Amino acid sequence: MDSLYLILLALFLLVIIPRIMQRRRLAAIRHILNRKMRNKENIEMKELAKRFIGEECIIYTITSNDGSVQGLIKEIDDGGMVIEKKTGELEIINLDFVTRIRQYPRKKNGKKKDIVLD
């Protein structure tokens, strides 16, 4: 009887919880996309993001694995932005999934902070 409970618990932890998290994430993505299409927020985000061209920023998105992307914003087009990471690789991010753009924080002497807490 105890093994049955262990199997059910393992099933719950390994299958059901990740499914619930995936559904919540997809629902959040759908909600934001619907809101942006209704309110035409994409144009506003594009205009606001143009202020950060040439700056090193932290871009918070819904879809990235760790929640944010760090790098230098190179250019911004109709649907996305081109970011150059520290390693030199380029990444293109869809502006529909951007929730926040933040200039990389600096200390009083102008050096970049080692740890960024949000």
Rank of each mutant, 00 (worst) to 15 (best):
residue 49 A to F: 13
residue 76 I to D: 00
residue 79 G to A: 09
residue 35 R to W: 09
residue 84 E to Q: 10
residue 36 K to R: 14
residue 92 I to L: 08
residue 81 M to C: 06
residue 66 D to E: 11
residue 55 E to R: 15
residue 56 E to T: 11
residue 74 K to A: 02
residue 58 I to M: 08
residue 90 L to C: 00
residue 59 I to F: 03
residue 93 I to G: 08
residue 95 L to Q: 05
residue 88 G to Y: 02
residue 76 I to P: 04
residue 80 G to C: 08
residue 88 G to K: 04
residue 53 I to Y: 04
residue 42 N to H: 06
residue 83 I to R: 00
residue 40 K to S: 09
residue 43 I to Y: 03
residue 70 Q to Y: 14
residue 67 G to T: 01
residue 50 K to N: 09
residue 84 E to C: 02
residue 65 N to W: 06
residue 64 S to N: 11
residue 42 N to D: 10
residue 53 I to H: 02
residue 36 K to I: 15
residue 63 T to L: 14
residue 95 L to T: 05
residue 75 E to P: 04
residue 43 I to G: 01
residue 36 K to F: 15
residue 63 T to M: 15
residue 34 N to L: 15
residue 35 R to E: 13
residue 46 K to R: 14
residue 51 R to I: 09
residue 40 K to A: 06
residue 58 I to H: 00
residue 59 I to A: 04
residue 37 M to G: 10
residue 33 L to C: 07
residue 73 I to Y: 02
residue 90 L to W: 04
residue 69 V to H: 01
residue 50 K to R: 11
residue 78 D to R: 13
residue 90 L to A: 02
residue 47 E to A: 10
residue 95 L to P: 03
residue 54 G to P: 01
residue 59 I to C: 03
residue 87 T to K: 01
residue 87 T to H: 01
residue 63 T to Q: 10
residue 68 S to M: 08
residue 97 F to C: 11
residue 98 V to R: 00
residue 38 R to G: 06
residue 36 K to M: 13
residue 66 D to M: 10
residue 34 N to R: 14
residue 95 L to C: 04
residue 70 Q to K: 15
residue 48 L to W: 13
residue 34 N to H: 14
residue 44 E to T: 13
residue 93 I to H: 03
residue 65 N to Y: 07
residue 85 K to W: 00
residue 85 K to L: 09
residue 78 D to L: 14
residue 84 E to K: 12
residue 36 K to L: 12
residue 38 R to P: 02
residue 95 L to F: 00
residue 49 A to T: 15
residue 73 I to L: 14
residue 79 G to P: 01
residue 66 D to Q: 13
residue 41 E to T: 10
residue 89 E to D: 11
residue 100 R to I: 09
residue 100 R to F: 09
residue 37 M to Y: 07
residue 94 N to F: 05
residue 68 S to Y: 13
residue 40 K to Q: 07
residue 39 N to S: 09
residue 69 V to D: 07
residue 96 D to T: 13
residue 99 T to K: 15
residue 50 K to W: 05
residue 34 N to T: 12
residue 62 I to W: 02
residue 68 S to R: 05
residue 33 L to R: 08
residue 39 N to W: 04
residue 68 S to K: 07
residue 59 I to M: 03
residue 73 I to V: 13
residue 33 L to F: 07
residue 60 Y to I: 05
residue 54 G to F: 08
residue 49 A to H: 05
residue 40 K to E: 11
residue 50 K to S: 12
residue 98 V to F: 01
residue 83 I to A: 06
residue 85 K to H: 05
residue 92 I to R: 10
residue 37 M to N: 12
residue 88 G to T: 00
residue 47 E to P: 01
residue 79 G to R: 10
residue 35 R to F: 14
residue 97 F to Y: 15
residue 73 I to T: 03
residue 59 I to K: 00
residue 50 K to P: 05
residue 88 G to V: 03
residue 58 I to P: 00
residue 55 E to L: 11
residue 44 E to C: 06
residue 40 K to L: 08
residue 95 L to S: 04
residue 70 Q to S: 15
residue 63 T to C: 11
residue 71 G to Y: 01
residue 37 M to K: 10
residue 42 N to M: 07
residue 46 K to M: 10
residue 95 L to G: 00
residue 58 I to F: 05
residue 51 R to S: 13
residue 44 E to D: 15
residue 82 V to M: 06
residue 56 E to L: 12
residue 79 G to N: 12
residue 79 G to M: 09
residue 69 V to G: 02
residue 38 R to W: 03
residue 61 T to Y: 08
residue 47 E to T: 07
residue 87 T to Y: 03
residue 50 K to A: 07
residue 100 R to V: 12
residue 33 L to I: 12
residue 92 I to A: 12
residue 52 F to T: 12
residue 47 E to L: 10
